[in-house]
Nucleic acid binder design. Sequence first.
DNA 1: TCTTTAAAGATAGTAATACTATCTTTAAAA
DNA 2: TTTTAAAGATAGTATTACTATCTTTAAAGA
Lengths: 223, 223
Amino acid sequence: MELKLQIRMNEKLFLRDPEQTELGKKIIQHSILLIHKSGFESFTFKKLAEDINSTEAGVYRYFENKHKLLMYITAWYWSWLEYRVTVHGLNIKSPAVRLKKVIKLLATTVEDDISTSYVNESILHQIIIAEGSKAYFTKHVAEDNRDQFFKPYKDLCAKVSDIILECSPKYKYPKSLASTIVEMAHFQNFFMHNLPALTDFGKEKDETKVVAFLEDLVFSAIQ
Amino acid sequence: MELKLQIRMNEKLFLRDPEQTELGKKIIQHSILLIHKSGFESFTFKKLAEDINSTEAGVYRYFENKHKLLMYITAWYWSWLEYRVTVHGLNIKSPAVRLKKVIKLLATTVEDDISTSYVNESILHQIIIAEGSKAYFTKHVAEDNRDQFFKPYKDLCAKVSDIILECSPKYKYPKSLASTIVEMAHFQNFFMHNLPALTDFGKEKDETKVVAFLEDLVFSAIQ
DNA sequence: TCTTTAAAGATAGTAATACTATCTTTAAAA
DNA sequence: TTTTAAAGATAGTATTACTATCTTTAAAGA
């Protein structure tokens, strides 16, 4: 039996569904690699087209602009993470154990557990850390939010929030704590590698320390 | 007696010191307004030049590019915040009270307490919330960090970290907790206004709730 | 097998962006 | 009065961020 993970994406994010064609999948695959290599600012559809031996106009048939592509990629990432959080939490009765599992999933580099042919999840994880917030730090957040582009991110935070409430029904800030965990899982990783003075794990650069910090933070807060 | 606050800026951030000339001050003043109005992505030196009745080439004499200008502005902001944290903490003996004061300073909109003629601190606060992290989420962070461009940010976090240690000398993650407070003071504000599902204060949009959340989080962690 | 149609390729063009260069004017300091 | 530094004016270039159009390819349908 071969399993294939298919994530249903918001149709307003693309002009032509990239999952339906070879070129589309190459666009996703290589834009992840190219953004990882040179950063989102210097990423252009022209460079991407050269990478995949296609044309700029070809890429524009799939995505209106590079920001939509970034939102597509981030939305995919958060959907995929929510899926993983669900799967890994299925048989865990204790909400506290489940919460720990979630923190680990958020803060550690993925080992490809469900293979998706054209997405390199480990590299994707890295680009979301450095570029993910650019998806919503724009002047058109409100509109993009109305178009549901951030739904996967919000769904994941809602799921984390629910687990927090299961652990501690009286805790007053489950949503804010959830978004704090999700953001900090990425930020502390970025700081650890790039601005180590902002963390306590600059020397070791060990992801499990980020997990330990977040666990300590969260369980102190909700107990 | 008239007081004038002067912040010594890293000289590598600019080509010509904007504080020394009228044009320079207009560049800072109006770039803050323009970034606030249309966002950093659509901000250009040409538009800025038109706003201040100067020329594009004129702006380029002060700043190499718009990213350097963003780093200048963010560095100025963090220096200014550290100054405020210092001043407001001077007569407070209890580190816990001082920590609360810091959280309040980080998370609430400033009322112009020390007037700086050409910087609108309240608008600056808002643009740092939405654009500030773009200063370091680049492919050249490492280099920029070597050039000390993020020193004001790191100094502020170090100061917060020190207060945390004063409160609780055995706490294991003072630096990470400090950067978490600083980042979340801004993120929760942004989320509250733009992606309210990610916070517990979406309805009221009340900054004091962000303060309450952060206080609860911090003091649970260090106790 | 023939036809039709959708996707992709090839090519061109345009307005805006991100600069650099140079020459002139202005105004304050020496 | 001369020198010099800043600012203004203008021009030019490579790249970016698109849009348009025409042709080829290949698979699906009749």
